[in-house]
C-alpha cells in the first residue's frame, strides 16, 4: 500500500538535494504549470509575432512581470487571466522552471 507513495516522496527529496543554490521555486510544479504557457511561448525560445521568449529570464524579473499582470499594471487580458490565478509559489515555480531552460534556448 505504501508503494505508490514512494516515487513522489523520493522525487521531492532528490529535487531538494539537486537544487542547492537554485531558485526556491518547485521546478516540478513549474514544469506542470509551464504547459499552459508553451501553447504560445515556445519552449525552444523562438519568438514569432508578438509572443516573446520567456525562457532564461532571471527569477526576480520573471516574478515581477507576472505580478504586474496579476495586479493589472500590465494590460494584456490573456496574461492578466493566466497570472491572475497563479499563487505566489506557483509564479516562483514557473520562474524556476523557465529560468533553468536558459542554456538550451540561448544556444545558437
Amino acid at each position: 500500500m505504501a508503494l505508490p507513495r514512494l516515487p513522489a516522496m523520493s522525487v521531492g527529496l532528490l529535487l531538494a538535494s539537486a537544487s542547492t543554490g537554485a531558485p526556491a521555486g518547485d521546478r516540478e510544479l513549474g514544469e506542470y504549470l509551464s504547459a499552459e504557457c508553451v501553447t504560445c511561448h515556445q519552449i525552444s525560445g523562438h519568438e514569432t509575432g508578438a509572443v516573446p521568449r520567456i525562457t532564461g529570464w532571471p527569477d526576480d524579473h520573471f516574478v515581477a512581470v507576472m505580478n504586474a499582470y496579476k495586479d493589472k499594471h500590465r494590460d494584456n487580458p490573456i496574461m492578466q487571466t493566466i497570472a491572475g490565478r497563479l499563487a505566489a509559489e506557483e509564479i516562483e515555480a514557473l520562474a524556476a522552471y523557465f529560468g533553468a531552460v536558459q542554456s538550451q534556448s540561448v544556444a545558437k
Binding site: 508553451v38 504560445c40 509575432g49
Partner: peptide
C-alpha cells in the same frame, strides 16, 4: 493582437508537433 495570433499559431503547432 494579430501579431499575437500569428505567434500563437507558431507556438501551438510547435507544442503539438515538435
Amino acid at each position: 493582437q494579430q501579431a499575437e495570433n500569428m505567434g500563437w499559431y507558431a507556438g501551438i503547432t510547435a507544442d503539438m508537433l515538435g
